[in-house]
Design a protein around this nucleic acid. Sequence first.
DNA 1: CGTAACATTGATTTCTGTCAATCCGAGTGG
DNA 2: CCACTCGGATTGACAGAAATCAATGTTACG
Lengths: 241, 241
Amino acid sequence: MKTANFLRRRRGVELTTSERDALEAALSEPRLLPARQTIVRRGVTVRESTLLIAGLVGRYMEDREGDRQLVALHVPGDFVDLHAFPLQHLDHDVVTLTEATIATVDHPALTALTAALPHLARMLWFSTLLDAAMHREWIFRLGRLDGPGRLAHFLCETAVRLEAVGLSDGRSFLLPITQSDIADACGLTNVHVNRVLRALRDARLLEIQGANVALHDRDALWWLAEFDPQYLYHDDRDPTP
Amino acid sequence: MKTANFLRRRRGVELTTSERDALEAALSEPRLLPARQTIVRRGVTVRESTLLIAGLVGRYMEDREGDRQLVALHVPGDFVDLHAFPLQHLDHDVVTLTEATIATVDHPALTALTAALPHLARMLWFSTLLDAAMHREWIFRLGRLDGPGRLAHFLCETAVRLEAVGLSDGRSFLLPITQSDIADACGLTNVHVNRVLRALRDARLLEIQGANVALHDRDALWWLAEFDPQYLYHDDRDPTP
DNA sequence: CGTAACATTGATTTCTGTCAATCCGAGTGG
DNA sequence: CCACTCGGATTGACAGAAATCAATGTTACG
C-alpha cells in the first residue's frame, strides 16, 4: 500500500477503506529518486502532488546570498506538496535529501476525488494543516529557543514523527543528512550546530554518529526544547496491523 | 457584506455569487470584542470558526517563562481560526490585539457547506494555505534575517496585506499595537525592537509615531527584508467595486 | 496630579556568526 | 595497495548582534 503511512496514527483521523482505496487508485506507480533532486521548483505551476513513501524530503527557501532556510522536513507518509493542489504554485523548492521513493496524484484526479468524497477532502485538508502546525512550531523554535533548544526541538520532533511511521523507537533513528542541513533547519550556522552538538554529547543528552541519532536523555531534551508533541496529533495506539 | 474582504484580491480565487451568499448566510451576526480578549484558548475543542471583519487579531504560542511568540497576525478579511474546523482544537491561543468585529460559523454548518460546494471547500482550504505560506515566510524571517531585516519584513508584509483590504496605500497604515507585540512577532526583545526602529528612523526608511506607521523608503525596506509578496497571492486588480 | 503602561537609553554580558585551519573517512585512480 | 582528493566534521580566535539588567522619559487617562 502506497498510502500505508499516510496520516498513520493521527488522532481523529479515520479514512474509510473506500476512501483509502480511491486515493490509492489515483496514485501513480512508485518511483525512486536520487538524493538532492529537486521535485518542485518555486514559482512553477504544479500539476500533480507527491506522496513520500520512503526517504527524506525538504522544503527550502533561499535568501539573497543563496543560503537556505529549511521550512519543512518530510518523512515517509507525508504528502509533501499537497498544498500545491489549491495553491497551484509554490513559494519554495521541494528537494529530496536522501534517495526517496514517491508516488504522485494528478490534480484533476484530486479535484474529482475531493468533490466525490467530502470527508476524504477534509482529511487531505487536515494533512496540510498538520504541516501548518509544524510550521508554527518551527516559528516558535526559531523565535524563542537558543541553539541547544533548537537542535533538541528539531531532533525530538523528528524522532516522534519517525516513530509514528515505524522508523524509530522514539530514542534512536537514522537521519542521513549533514550538519549543514540541520543548520538550515534551525537557523544556525553549520559551525555552531557542530559546537552545540558536542555540548549536548558532552552532557550525555544525545549522540550523533554519522547518520545515526541517539537521544539518550529524552526528558532532558524535551525540557530543553520545551517540546510537547500535542501539535502532531499522534495517536498512542496504532490501528495499522 | 461580512465576507467583503474574505479572499479579496487573491489571484486565482473566484468565489461565485452563490458560494459567497452561502458562506454569508452561514455566518453569525457581527459582534464587537474588546482588545486583548482571548477568542480561542489552546487545547480547547472548537465548535465554530471566526471571520475577522475589523480590527487586529494575533495567534500566540507561549514558552515556559510565559514569553509569547506571535505565529500569525490577522487583518480584516482573515478567517482567523478556520483551521480549527478540520483540526478541532488548536496548539495556540487566538487573541484580539485591538477592538475587533467578528462573525462566526458553526462547524456543522461548514461540514454541510463544504460537502455541498466542493469548490467553496477548496477556496476555504486555499485560505488556510495562505496562512501556511505566511508561516513559512515567518520561518524565513526568523531563521535568516537580522533585527532590521525582521522588522522591515514584518512591516512590509503588513502593509501589503492591509493594502489588499483597503486599509493602506502601501506606504502608511495604522498599527495600534505595542513594540512588545512587534518583538513577539519578530523573535526579538522589546528593547531591541526599540533600538532597531530608531536606527531605521535615523536612516529615514520608516517612522512609527504612536499607532501610525509610515514606510518612507519602500524599496530599501523590501531590499533589507528580502521581501517578495508573491506568497501572498495578491492580485493587482481589485474586482471589488 | 498621580499612576500605569509604554518608549527610550545606557552599560554589560552572552550567544552566535565569521574566518581560518585542520582533521577524517570514503571513494578514486595510478 | 596507497597517495590523493573531496565533502563533511571539528576546533580555535575573534567580531558582532542581541539579550539582559537597570534607569529614566513620556503620554494618556482616571
